[in-house]
Every structure is written in structure tokens, then in C-alpha cells.
């Protein structure tokens, strides 16, 4: 209980500092911080359409956040969600390319997740066999995925009628908004359910337990028959599952385009937003859920801030960057 209170206090402190420094940055640049924050934090809550849009933003952030959170449990600094999300989206686009009816939806899910898992297997195996640090391995794979997916979207999967994006999901295979006129699709409840499943997995499953033990103390794990390499593999695999799902959903359930932009705009940066969410949520799946909703609100709010107050959208990046910095400082101190 005391630990929970302390960790909430720490998180609160990091948020507070990030917002204060963000305000100073706005003030120096000649924008009104108070009005900007009011517009950023309150407008999204003032209207159901805005709120649903914020929730739609939260879904992929949550899924990539879970990737990082599961990695942390296993003692890994798995920042591969970014590239795995690209690969998930690529899988969905490939499905759209292959079939033009409703069967594209299950095929998209299958291919997307399979691509992402295969992608994460490379840094995982490099770590297990050759001792390659997972940070190095996943960054490398992120960049390989980045250029590979851009190439695929610009060539075989290019949309002949709209060259700036890929082929679209066939209409029958799209997850359209649950409430007309909003961005809220099945992706949102699906992502939240995934968070709950991951929680159950980590808290109750034998493998979740083994991941925690080997993450905290691999020597102990080894001494009592738990193989840390297997835990690494499982953690990477589960992480790729959620990251891949994020990529798939960004194509099949993201109105209005239902495709992958050639510059990867609708998947770019999600993996890193997920790291913020995971750190803000202290690595706990439900914490990550709450954090991703908060980040979703910021994302949506930033647009309103730009329109209503004229403060540039980019300040949200400044605040998120500061937030990561303060949260990382706390993590470092613990180590």
C-alpha cells in the first residue's frame, strides 16, 4: 500500500514538473500557458466526439505500452514496439492486397501479428544466442522495418489511385466507428480487453510468474529450473503480439483512410508513445491503460489548443519528452 502511494507520488511529481517546464517553454515562446493547458486538458472532456477521439488515440498507445511493460517485467528494455507496429500494419496491408472481401479482416490480424512476432524473434534470439543487448537489437530492427515497410507501401502495395497511401482495406473488412461521426471503433474496447488479459497473464499465469522471477533475478530462476532464455522469448513474443495488433488496428480500424500512409504517419511514433505510457503507468497493465487514456486526451487536446489558443501542437511533444526524462530519472535512481 505504501509502495503504491509512493509510486503515485513519484508519477505525480514527474507530471507536475513536466507541465511546469512545458509552461515555461510556452511562456518564453510567447504563448499563454494557462489558456493552452485549459484548452488541452478540458476541451477533450467537453464533448463526446472529442472524448471518443481521445480514446481512439489511446488504443494503439496502450497496445505498444503493453509491449514495453511486459518487457520490463522480464528485465528487458524492449523498445521494439515501433518496428513491430510497422510490421503489423504491413501485414494488414498485405491482407488487403491479397483478398478483397471480408476475409481480409482475419487474414490481416493473422499476417500482422505473425509479421510482428517474427520481427521480434530476431532481437530475442540474438540476445539469447549471442548476448546482443536488446536495445541495440530492437533499434536496429525498428529502422530496418521503417525502410522496408516504406518500400513495400511505395511499390507492390501502393494504391494506384492515391499514391500517398497503400491499398485500402476492402470495405467489408473494415472496423467502422461504433458511434457514427466519431473515431471510436472496436479497436478501443479490444485494446482495453487486451490490457486486462495481459494483467491476468502476468499476475496469474505460470509463465507470467516465471517472467517476473527471471526478470528480477535470473540467478534464482536458473537455480530452480526456470530458464531465463525462455522467459525472454515469451516476453518478446507477447510484446510483439500486442504491438502487431496495434499496427493491424491502425489500418483496419482507423477512419477515414483504412490504409497505411506512405510516410507511415498513422503508425509512426506509436512505439515511443507506448514507452511513455508504460513508464507513466509504472509497468502495470492497468496503470498503462490509465496512462494511455491520459496521453490520448493530451493528443486530442493538443489539436484544440492549436486551434483555440494558437499554441503549436508540438508543445505536446515537449511535455511528453520532459515527462519521459523525469520518469527515467526515477527509474535510474532505483537501479
Amino acid at each position: 500500500m505504501r509502495r503504491l502511494a509512493l509510486s503515485l507520488l513519484n508519477t505525480g511529481l514527474a507530471l507536475f514538473l513536466a507541465f511546469v517546464l512545458g509552461a515555461i517553454a510556452m511562456w518564453i515562446s510567447g504563448y499563454d500557458p494557462l489558456l493552452s493547458y485549459k484548452s488541452m486538458l478540458l476541451t477533450p472532456l467537453s464533448d463526446l466526439t472529442y472524448l471518443f477521439s481521445a480514446l481512439a488515440f489511446s488504443a494503439p498507445i496502450l497496445l505498444t505500452g503493453l509491449t514495453f511493460a511486459v518487457g520490463l517485467k522480464a528485465g528487458l528494455f524492449n523498445i521494439g514496439a515501433e518496428g513491430q507496429t510497422y510490421m503489423g500494419a504491413l501485414g494488414a496491408v498485405a491482407a488487403a492486397y491479397l483478398t478483397r472481401d471480408v476475409s481480409a479482416l482475419p487474414l490481416a490480424a493473422f499476417l500482422g501479428v505473425a509479421f510482428a512476432v517474427a520481427w521480434s524473434a530476431i532481437p530475442a534470439l540474438l540476445k539469447i544466442w549471442r548476448g546482443v543487448n536488446e536495445v541495440v537489437g530492437t533499434i536496429m530492427m525498428n529502422w530496418v522495418a521503417y525502410w522496408l515497410v516504406i518500400m513495400a507501401v511505395s511499390t507492390i502495395f501502393a494504391n494506384p489511385s492515391q499514391p500517398e497511401e497503400s491499398v485500402k482495406m476492402p470495405e467489408a473488412a473494415r472496423l467502422t466507428p461504433l458511434v457514427a461521426g466519431t473515431d471510436l471503433t472496436l479497436a478501443v474496447p479490444l485494446a482495453y480487453l487486451t490490457a486486462v488479459l495481459i494483467y491476468v497473464f502476468l499476475r496469474y499465469s505460470v509463465w507470467g510468474y516465471r517472467i517476473s522471477i527471471s526478470g528480477q533475478n535470473p540467478t534464482v530462476a536458473k537455480a530452480y529450473g526456470i530458464r531465463p532464455e525462455q522467459a525472454v522469448l515469451v516476453a518478446f513474443g507477447i510484446g510483439a503480439l500486442t504491438a502487431g495488433l496495434a499496427g493491424v488496428l491502425q489500418v483496419v480500424a482507423r477512419p477515414p483512410s483504412y490504409s497505411l500512409a506512405r510516410n507511415l504517419a498513422n503508425v509512426y511514433g506509436l512505439g515511443f508513445d507506448g514507452i511513455t505510457a508504460a513508464m507513466l503507468g509504472r509497468g502495470h497493465p492497468i496503470g498503462v491503460l490509465l496512462a494511455s487514456v491520459f496521453l490520448g486526451i493530451l493528443q486530442e487536446g493538443a489539436r484544440h489548443m492549436q486551434i483555440e489558443v494558437g499554441t503549436p501542437f508540438e508543445f505536446i511533444r515537449v511535455i511528453q519528452g520532459l515527462l519521459i526524462l523525469f520518469l527515467a530519472l526515477q527509474m535510474l535512481r532505483k537501479i
Binding site: 517476473s212 522471477i213 528480477q216 533475478n217 540467478t219 534464482v220 537455480a223
Partner: peptide
């Protein structure tokens, strides 16, 4: 402390 127990758990 190092080989038998996970102290944080």
C-alpha cells in the same frame, strides 16, 4: 539474498 530469494517479491 542473491541466489535463493527474490527480495522484492
Amino acid at each position: 539474498q542473491k541466489k535463493a530469494l527474490v527480495l522484492e517479491m
